[in-house]
Nucleic acid binder design. Structure first.
Lengths: 338, 338
DNA sequence: CTGAAAGCGCTTACAG
DNA sequence: CTGAAAGCGCTTACAG
């Protein structure tokens, strides 16, 4: 069964394919009566234009890619929602890519973006993108697809960056928590593969360096095993005997913090009385946990807005000043004493 | 700056565009030397084929759509991962659609699927799809795009369904829990808009109907407000005075169960001593909550495998017997007494 | 306001 | 094993 095309519609409606195309693309010039008639035929024959033919002819694709490190992480899902909303307001469609924290998947997606001649691409990941292969793939993609990266700045990159000031956020949070309880900190971060962890660790160190004795007692862990609940759980369990020396567990994301809390509860360590716990991202579920979890929150809608503004500027061949890094704020809940 | 195309490669390599195409599509017939040379030129000029032109000419698209009710729900994300893996093994690419629990978004996506001439579509949602408009859009899509639906069966539908036997799962779970504690049940489900809730409610009723006095004391709630943490929390809070009469809170998903637990904890109701709580889906985080949450789990990988098998059969114009409904099993954790 | 015709960039019978 | 040429289904100058 052959699908119906413009020519079928044109023949049936007694007009040219040009007129059909004009009606379907909302051209002003078509007479009311003609328009009605064509639309009636389109509906009757159940015609849907072939997107490939249209894009090929137009020489452009109105889709913008949204690539996130992992759709398993609620923060990224929130970001996707906000970006979609902002992008659709500008008349573009979106296509979501899940990187699954994998370099090879990212590289594949850059190729897909090129093949599809995407109008633009947004990349949000805390994983490093400065490895040789990844960097080359991104540079290659950015050559034809305007790119905006969320979260990390690379020297000499051919794209725009929108980011939170995580160094400052971490520093300030640690100072505030040390004010509540001046004891060493256990920082659960990720190894060299994570740009975000690096930034956040630097902030923590910066704050602690004001108190050399506390810094000496602190432990800044660099994990290699991903960042989910199980890892937070395992790392705290592994330090069961040494927990008394810490006053705060500072986690590079909310999932780690959740896992850490579970381990503490099993070990009989009370939160926040014996240990404060805080995460990063301020995901929706945090108020509903027991204890409810404190976190460093950031304005996702604000990020989306900036990203889209920057992307549109790039698409139109210009640049735009995205302004200073965005600020985070600390949200206290039970896990830091409310 | 015009993008480079096959003709540029052909000219530079001193061959025809046909040969370039053959090399790029892995045809057997090309000589080793020619192949090497063409690939060298492709790499040197940084050529990426135009996906629109290729698909238009080939008359097909090797992409399969995966539409889920909401990517905010971890169970759906797990499903996406498994489906992607299974689909890619078959040589297709995937494209993810987030329905955001919205009928209009679903309808838009069916149109997108038609325009893109997708090779197939997988739809996973617990929301009803038998409303007039939605049903019409799905029928229309299924006319050209092979469709497999996960989770709900519709009479006379032109697609294949793969589903869990949720009626049986709920019935069995309730019977088991009544064995542990013969008290009335508070069921938190969704209103008429949810097919899944309906199935699960029926199972619960079926089990309770064996114990008329318990059925009389039970309450089967039909919520209208979505299914996230906040709803579970609010509904339990709203029944603060009446909780003593129930022995179990049975939730239609894990997020509701999490919210319910938080409310119970605030009200000083101990889980599981005073109240058992169980959810649906067995999401990854459950073991790390306090208390850890019991749930009805299902084999997501098994679903993905069946779906892909059914979809391939449809794509090739045939049908396939997907077999009986899949079984769930109850996973006991602290919230039901371990 | 409308139509005839060219052409977007590929792939694939067909011929050699 | 390779090339010349047709054609996938649209949209858009161009002409009327």
């Amino acid at each position: 069964m052959k699908q119906v095309g413009v020519v079928d519609i044109a023949r049936e409606a007694g007009v040219s394919t040009a007129t059909v195309s004009r009606v379907l693309n909302g051209a002003e010039s078509v007479t009311g009566a003609t328009r009605e008639h064509v639309l009636e035929v389109v509906a009757r024959l159940g015609y849907t234009p072939n997107a490939f033919a249209a894009s090929l002819r137009k020489g452009r694709n109105d889709a913008i890619g949204i690539a996130v490190a992992s759709i398993s992480q609620p923060w990224h899902v929130k970001l996707i929602r906000e970006l979609r909303r902002a992008i659709r307001e500008q008349g573009f469609t979106t296509i979501v890519y899940d990187l699954e924290h994998s370099e090879s998947v990212l590289i594949e997606h850059t190729e897909s973006a090129r093949r599809l001649r995407l109008a633009g691409m947004v990349l949000a990941t805390g994983d490093r993108i400065d490895g040789d292969e990844v960097r080359a793939a991104l540079d290659r993609m950015a050559g034809t697809v305007p790119l905006v990266v969320i979260g990390q700045e690379l020297p000499g990159a051919g794209w725009t960056t929108v980011a939170f000031d995580d160094v400052a956020a971490s520093e300030q949070a640690i100072l505030e928590l040390l004010g509540r309880r001046p004891k060493p900190v256990l920082f659960l971060g990720e190894a060299a593969s994570s740009y975000l962890s690096e930034e956040r660790r630097i902030g923590v160190e910066r704050a602690l360096s004001q108190f050399p004795d506390l810094l000496a007692g602190s432990e800044l862990v660099a994990l290699d095993a991903g960042m989910d609940f199980s890892v937070g759980y395992r790392e705290v369990q592994a330090r069961a005997g040494a927990l008394a020396r810490f006053g705060t567990i500072f986690c590079v994301n909310d999932e780690l913090a959740l896992g850490a809390c579970r381990a503490l509860s099993e070990l009989g360590v009370r939160v926040p009385e014996d240990m404060m716990v805080i995460g990063y991202g301020d995901v929706d579920m945090l108020p509903y946990l027991t204890p409810s979890l404190s976190s460093l929150s950031g304005d996702v809608g604000g990020v989306a807005e900036r990203v889209v503004r920057a992307l549109l500027a790039r698409i139109e061949g210009g640049h735009v000043d995205v302004g200073p890094k965005l600020q985070r704020k600390i949200v206290h809940r039970e896990s830091t004493g409310g």
